[in-house]
Simulated assay, not measured.
Amino acid sequence: MSPSESDETLESFGADVGKREGTVTRVQEWFLIQGGRLAVAAVLALVVLVSLVAAYELEVVAFANPNSVTRVASGMIAGTFSLVTLVVSVNQLILSQEFSAASKARDRLDGVMEFRQDVAEEASVPASPAAPTRVLELVIEAIRHDAVELADAVADHDDEVRDVVVRYTNSIEQRADRIDETLEETSFGTFTAVSAAINYDEAWQLYVATHLRGEYADSLSSDATERLDELIGSLKLFNVAREHLKTTYLQRELTRFSQLTIYCGVPSILSAVAIGLLYADFTGPNVNLAAMPYAVIVLILIGLSPLFLLVSYILRTATVTRRTASIGPMIPQKDPDEGPFDVSYGEDS
């Protein structure tokens, strides 16, 4: 393995592939992932407000024609009812996962208990914590411990093997320290824990570990091979823990989205009705003509509030799902023509 190849084995091609630098990237990450969903919805509402006011001041749009305005109000009412129907469908999807027969519920419980027992054994604790974020912390600590043990196990190996493995374990320790610091400052109710979990590149680390085990099978001692297998097991546990955390959080996220949409649905319909009533008098609008456009704009914003919520929540859930779509060392972000581990059929023979 050449030096350049050794360097590339330490690069991350996991869920957080790409640099997180630059103002545009930070704004994008805040909009898609990091920002609170209500804050994102408020930003969308502000953008629409400024756009409508600017369009009116520039005489691009007008609010003088009652027929046009009432048609817009009718469309908003129809759209709100369609959105509420969508929310009901989302709730049915979530509830369908909760309803199960006794046998299926027992299997789910046994699976969770078995996983928690595996975490407890891996971390050498009596029982894994109840909080999901604390479980992730235990698994991360187990990964860091296994990496240190692996580095110690190859201390007396050949320079080539030792250098590659030590650099690999050093990268694991650095990544583990970063996610551990993040998890210590968060709770399950915030999205920061999920964000830290999906940005941890255990898929790439698992891929490198399995390749190193096959590449240096004859060069690694039995103790080093055992330490490497334990590290692979810990990385697998993290993958399972992350999927469990992600699934639980997204269920809570979609449930909250459903509640907020229902809360905003009634004011949205009432605001659309109010727009129509403003123009219902035969003598014209009852509101001062100078204030009428701004009153209609405010009512439009209220009517579009469920849409702002839909956009903000779906953007986050879709982004999280896309970044964690693969299981194990199957990394869609990785270009198939790149990387140091270019293999061909029958290479070992």
Rank of each mutant, 00 (worst) to 15 (best):
Val165Ile: 14
Ser268Leu: 01
Gly276Tyr: 05
Ala290Met: 07
Leu150Gln: 07
Thr9Lys: 08
Ser124Met: 11
Asp335Ala: 09
Ala39Gln: 14
Arg20Gly: 06
Asn91Ile: 08
Ser271Met: 05
Asp348Met: 03
Val135Trp: 04
Ala209Asn: 07
Tyr168His: 08
Ala291Ile: 12
Ser68Arg: 13
Ile327Gln: 05
Thr9Leu: 15
Leu304Asp: 04
Ala130Trp: 13
Leu49Met: 07
Ala42Ile: 10
Thr85Trp: 09
Ala291His: 02
Val17Asn: 07
Gly276Pro: 01
Asp7His: 05
Tyr56Phe: 15
Leu304Pro: 05
Asp110Met: 13
Ile300His: 04
Thr210Gly: 08
Glu173Tyr: 01
Gly339Arg: 10
Gly214Leu: 06
Glu11Ala: 07
Ser219Arg: 15
Tyr56His: 14
Ile302Asp: 01
Ala147Leu: 02
Val90Met: 12
Val343Ile: 12
Gly265Asp: 10
Ser268Met: 04
Phe13Lys: 02
Val72Ile: 12
Glu5Pro: 00
Ala241Gln: 07
Cys264Thr: 13
Leu304Asn: 00
Arg323Ser: 04
Ala127Asp: 08
Gly276Val: 02
Arg227Trp: 02
Ala131Met: 03
Leu10Lys: 13
Thr70Asp: 04
Glu184Asp: 15
Ser221Cys: 08
Glu5His: 10
Asp107Met: 11
Phe188Val: 00
Leu44Ile: 09
Leu58Thr: 12
Ser6Ala: 10
Leu310Val: 05
Arg323Pro: 01
Val165Asn: 00
Val125Lys: 09
Ile179Arg: 12
Arg227Lys: 15
Gly346Cys: 07
Ser222Ile: 09
Val69Ser: 04
Leu183Pro: 03
Lys236Val: 10
Val287His: 01
Leu310Gln: 05
Val139Leu: 03
Ser344Pro: 00
Ile179Ser: 07
Val266Arg: 03
Leu52Gly: 01
Phe257Gln: 14
Arg37Thr: 10
Leu183Thr: 01
Glu114Gln: 15
Gln117Ala: 14
Asp201Trp: 07
Thr283Ala: 13
Asn170Pro: 00
Val112Asp: 15
Asp107Pro: 00
Leu38Tyr: 02
Leu38Phe: 11
Asp118Lys: 15
Gln251Ile: 10
Ser128Val: 07
Leu95Phe: 06
Ala217Tyr: 11
Leu245Pro: 00
Thr319Cys: 03
Glu137Lys: 14
